[in-house]
Write a protein that binds this DNA or RNA. Structure first.
Length: 869
DNA sequence: GACTGCACGC
DNA sequence: GACGTACGTGCAGTCC
């Protein structure tokens, strides 16, 4: 069979389909007309054209390179109606179900992606069909490429071939851009020449050939008004031509071989069609059994539910912060009937509260941590959580952005309204009326129930069920306790710092204004750039997208050039401390005198935790100035202290373990400083020949290994050239042959399996590992190398936390775990416990996992986090 | 409200 | 040659 490529302009056809069909929707209120139209089109194309290659291109983002030519490009366009924009994710899902590739590229429009692929196809003499609702694309027509233009609806089509274009206009497709240059395009807000429409433009082009030649022959054009308009708007016309010209060399990192059409299995389609309720299409297909969302039966009372076995439970609150915001009703289902009860009703229902606190009764949830915290707030100690759909989704693929139940359910062919659809967003967020809310909560809990078995199976297949059951789920309960507990922060200590900082910042401001000659906003990189690089004429080293860069490394390079620079650097440092920490933290202190951060367990791609509102994982430590912030973090009771225990070099120990590199293992087994050891190996010298500089460089390389930085990154951190940094890495890998071997193996593994794994079987998919784009691939390779190291370190500390929480209950220790900062745990402890507790924690952490090098934990304590160093 | 530049931690 | 290069969160400024 001869190769045939089909390229679809996704955005333009989605619009066409949307406006061509009535506003259909499924039972859950999701609009489906654009998706339906798109489906009809795909079916028709596949049947009529039998393509071997297929791509749907989408516009990316709001601005493109064309906006830099003409700021008002596409100005005055109506906003995409929400009924349509909510269908775009479904259209993408649809395309994926057909195993058709889709692609979008920042700064470019779908047109340019299509143009680029069409050019490549033409160079390979491959027949190409472009399908669009936008006449612009006709400029791409040639002997190999035809453009199908949807006239009305989506299946009524004009076929533009070179002959068709010639017949229509009298000239070939190459002149379409000249035509646009003259007549403009109202829909894209391309100006063209006033008074020139299609008729005049065609006439001019037939007479003179191109736009440039029309301009060259202005003297020959006698019509007074036309001549005047052409003369006055030459520049507009040329710019309009440029705007209308499709880029056929867009930097796409896909090629023809990437868009081969694979056979689509029907079940994905059926699953989606069922969810969308495309009954006619389903009737035409051989239906195979798939999970279909059950009908929602809302019981009148919770008493109608069968509480003898497992249930799915869903409780939520208004907005994100479940530690403080209003608790919303609880939904529960036994798999048949679903009930929704208010927070007040829960508390007063003895049988229900007993059920929720019964460890022997299994519950399936979405976000165990949130459930447990909200229950705690209602005075219920929730027990028996058996499965967390949200954690499962993260473990199956951490790159999934977890938004709400709807998002996760959508991945399994169940479609329900999103949180945003029900509650709105931003300032307009509101709790909907009772029936709508009940219905929504009911649907969500039902989805959780149905997803549980399915996702358990998926985890089992990946050998990740244990990771869920024994690590992430128990950890989420530990984290719930930590968040609820909070850490005491001394407001007065912060206020004192604030006053002190204010004085110093004011002084610096005065100095800076004096040196600049006038006042300006130092916090504005834009204004600062003007002062430094225009008014003071300092040499600008780097530019950002929007102007001069004023980042630290740039300013450091200018330190000796002008007195203002050190003042600005000092100002920056203090202003950051003041706004983010001293003032920022004060705002977060609750009535209990504590700060309650929330840990995000399903975000970081490597398996680490993150912390929000506030982020307590980036409290300053490097410079003493900032480190003093930690003085405000204290124990909650007199006689108690802050105790901090951190893993020493956990990532490099993991690396030694995974690679079994002899000299690295040797260093850890004999307590030799790892950076010194690295320097010895890389520079091939004895222990006592390693000077401070060599150690510093070795440390930077180790840092690079741990974080997966590039030669560029290393060159930046060491202040050396890029080739020198590359050579450094090479020397390193030669000195540690097993590490080199590991790096090669792990990249192969990623190529073979599509993912890499940690010691506890956490996965990260690396789709770009085979990318043709050099940067994307380089990034993917470093990700592949680094994730098992950083992710395994995350596994270890998480395991230590789970073990700690389980074991501490068997003791009399009163100590409380408060925070986790990637490789360290922060506790508050009664002073008299310290000695014993320290040993206990050390034992938990060092023996969390047995590696072939020892894990080493160092700890300290004091009146505040500052003293626990 | 969304985006950018910058800066803090690991 | 590829032009942007660990991961996160939060602040202020800017533009719409």
């Amino acid at each position: 069979m001869k190769d045939k490529l089909v390229l679809i302009d996704g955005n333009s056809l989605a619009f066409r389909a949307f406006y061509a069909l009535p506003l259909l929707s499924n039972h859950a209120g999701i609009h489906t007309n654009a998706v339906y139209g798109f489906t009809l089109l795909l079916e028709k194309i596949l049947k009529d054209e039998n393509p071997t290659h297929f791509l749907v291109a989408f516009d990316a983002g709001k601005t493109t390179f064309r906006h830099s030519t003409f700021g008002d490009y596409k100005g005055g366009r109506q906003k995409t109606p929400p009924e349509l924009s909510e269908q775009f994710p479904l259209i993408r899902k649809l395309i994926e179900a057909y195993h058709i590739k889709h692609y979008e590229l920042e700064n470019y429009e779908a047109d340019d992606i299509i143009g680029t692929l069409a050019r490549e196809a033409t160079e390979n003499r491959m027949e190409t069909i472009i399908i669009t609702g936008d006449r612009d694309l006709t400029q791409l027509v040639n002997d190999y490429v035809s453009v199908y233009y949807t006239k009305k609806g989506v299946t009524d089509i004009d076929r533009y071939t070179p002959d068709f274009v010639k017949e229509k206009y009298g000239f070939g497709p190459e002149k379409i851009i000249d035509l646009k240059g003259l007549m403009g395009d109202k829909s894209d807000n391309i100006p063209g020449v006033p008074g020139v429409g299609e008729k005049t433009a065609v006439k001019l082009l037939l007479e003179y050939g191109t736009l440039e030649e029309v301009i060259g022959h202005l003297d020959d054009i006698k019509a007074k008004k036309l001549n005047e308009n052409l003369t006055n708007h030459q520049a507009d016309a040329l710019m309009s031509k440029k705007l209308a010209t499709i880029e056929v060399h867009a930097p796409v990192d896909i090629g023809l071989q990437d868009v081969k059409l694979e056979d689509a299995a029907n079940d994905k389609k059926i699953e989606l069609f069922k969810a969308l309720e495309f009954k006619q299409l389903l009737d035409q297909m051989e239906t195979a059994p798939v999970v279909q969302q059950q009908e929602l039966i809302i019981a009148d009372s919770i008493d109608e539910l069968d509480l003898s076995g497992a249930t799915a439970v869903f409780i939520d609150c208004f907005k994100d912060n479940y530690l403080v915001n209003e608790v919303l009703p609880l939904a529960m289902t036994d798999g048949e009937k679903t009930a929704v009860v208010t927070a007040e009703e829960i508390k007063n229902h003895a049988q229900l509260t007993a059920y929720l606190a019964d460890a022997d009764k299994k519950k399936y949830v979405f976000d165990a941590k949130k459930n447990v915290v909200l229950m705690k707030r209602l005075g219920i100690d929730m027990q028996g959580i058996d499965f967390d759909v949200m954690l499962a989704s993260y473990l199956l693929d951490p790159s999934r952005t977890i938004v709400d139940v709807a998002e996760t359910a959508g991945l399994h062919g169940m479609i329900l309204p999103s949180n945003e659809q029900i509650f709105g967003k931003g300032a307009k967020m509101a709790i909907p009326e009772e029936t709508e809310l009940k219905d929504y909560f009911g649907r969500q809990v039902q989805a959780i129930y149905q997803l549980t078995d399915k996702m358990k199976d998926e985890l089992r297949q990946n050998e990740q069920l244990k990771l869920h059951d024994e690590l992430e789920l128990p950890l989420s309960l530990v984290l719930a306790g930590m968040e609820y507990q909070g850490i005491t922060v001394d407001r007065n200590a912060l206020i004192e710092m604030q006053d002190e900082l204010k004085t110093r910042i004011d002084e610096l401001m005065a100095t800076i204004y004096g040196l600049a000659g006038h006042e300006f906003n130092i916090n504005s990189p834009k204004q600062l750039g003007v002062i430094l690089f225009e008014e003071l004429k300092l040499p600008a080293a780097k530019k950002t997208k929007t102007g001069y860069s004023t980042a630290v490394d740039v300013l450091e390079g200018l330190r000796d050039k002008h007195e203002i620079i050190p003042a600005i650097l000092d100002y920056r440092q203090l202003a950051k401390l003041q706004s983010t920490y001293v003032e920022g933290l004060q705002k977060m202190i609750d009535e209990d005198g504590k700060i309650h951060t929330r840990f995000n367990q399903v975000l970081a791609q490597t398996g680490r935790l993150s912390s929000v509102e506030p982020n307590l994982q980036n409290i300053p430590i490097r410079l003493d100035e900032g480190r003093k912030i930690r003085k405000a973090f204290t124990a909650s009771e007199p006689g108690w202290v802050i105790f901090a225990a951190d893993y020493s070099q956990i990532e490099l120990r993991v690396l030694a373990h995974i690679t079994e590199d002899k000299s690295m293992m040797d260093a850890f087994n004999h307590g030799i400083d790892i950076h010194t050891k690295t320097a010895m190996e890389v520079f091939d010298v004895d222990n006592n020949a390693v000077d401070a500089n060599m150690r510093r460089q070795a440390k930077a390389v180790n840092f690079g290994i741990v974080y997966g930085i590039s030669d560029y990154g290393l060159s930046q951190s060491l202040g050396i050239s890029r080739p020198a940094a590359a050579r450094f890495i090479e020397d390193y890998l030669e000195s540690f042959p097993n590490v080199k071997q590991y790096m090669d193996d792990v990249i192969q593994q990623a190529k073979r399996d599509g993912y890499v794994s940690t010691l506890l079987n956490r996965r990260r998919y690396i789709p770009d590992i085979n990318a043709r784009n050099f940067n994307a691939r380089g990034f993917a390779e470093r990700t592949a190398m680094n994730t098992p190291i950083q992710g395994s370190a995350a596994d270890i500390i998480k395991l230590a936390m789970v073990n700690y929480a389980r074991e501490i209950r068997k003791t009399d220790f009163k100590a409380k775990l408060l925070l986790q900062v990637h490789d360290e745990l922060i506790f508050e402890v009664p002073e008299e416990e310290i000695e014993a507790f320290s040993l206990f924690v050390k034992d938990m952490m060092e023996n969390a996992m047995e590696l072939n090098v020892p894990l080493l934990v160092e700890s300290n304590y004091g009146a505040s986090w500052y003293e626990a160093k």
